[in-house]
Design a protein around this nucleic acid. Structure first.
Lengths: 138, 138
DNA sequence: ATTGAAAATGATAATGGTTTTCAATATCAG
DNA sequence: CTGATATTGAAAACCATTATCATTTTCAAT
């Protein structure tokens, strides 16, 4: 039996493989939009009905710590999570359908460096998030 | 008696001028770092002891709606607010002392436009927030 | 396969920040 | 001044998140 790559990664981090984790991980991995813990709970229970909400919280925490998902900040709240393939990426969210598109922030580096010079800050982290309408919704 | 400009702006928006609002507005206006509702509550009560926490929430809402303060998103949470002089600005937060520096995002416009072209999104809003150490703390 | 220590789970309760409700109070136009 | 209306703060309600804990499951070592 071959496991989803996410589960393999969790396992390598010392997490045991369980039905609950499989259900939560696959729900997140298959979603192209941000999901709240409750949404994950409802969706993952279709595959694993015995799942408890507390376990959803704990598994999301594990997935975030492992770098497989990231928290999404939105005007309405900051409780949602979305896949984070390949580490640090920037988000572009559709305000209509909720779809999320990831993009690299290569051009951002220059901007950040010049801001660091101007302000005297040693900048260690950055967040860029865009909102708009995706090609289908506009 | 001359009022703080923020209070004049609130008044022009139809809000009445009260001691509670004066205390909350001045606490926010005088802070150079992000404050949570509870922090505002504790600080503003020094000037206006009868202040209730509920009124802090309501006044922060009014100040945000009027564009005088903005919500600050941080890894630990997104409940804090900070002054927003001159409308939309970007934040640079010191991870050590919490001080916030504002900067314009002029150079960002080009980047955003090219991302819009690449992704097919019609981008309507953007958030950029930087974290690091300020000149005093590094 | 079996065993057993340690991890994981889920039900329940506790927590704590935010909102709602509502009667009393304060503001301010007339 | 006066009164309609906005505002206030205390208390209660709400609800997402976290802590507790007895039970179950995983999985490495037999």
């Amino acid at each position: 039996m071959t496991e989803h790559p996410w589960l393999t990664q969790l396992n390598e981090r010392g997490y045991r493989l369980t039905g609950a984790r499989r259900a939560v991980a696959e729900t997140m991995a298959n979603s192209d939009r941000a999901l709240t813990p409750i949404e994950v709970y409802d969706m993952a229970r279709e595959a694993y009905p015995a799942l408890g909400l507390v376990t959803v919280y704990r598994t999301l925490e594990a997935l975030e710590e492992t770098g497989l998902i990231q928290r999404v900040h939105q005007p309405e709240g900051c409780q949602a999570f979305i896949t984070a393939p390949g580490g640090h990426q920037h988000l572009l969210l559709c305000q209509q359908c909720g779809r999320a598109t990831l993009f690299g922030g290569d051009d951002l580096e220059n901007l950040i460096q010049s801001i660091g010079r101007e302000t005297g800050y040693q900048i260690t982290e950055h967040w860029l998030q865009l909102f708009g309408l995706c090609s289908d919704c506009r």
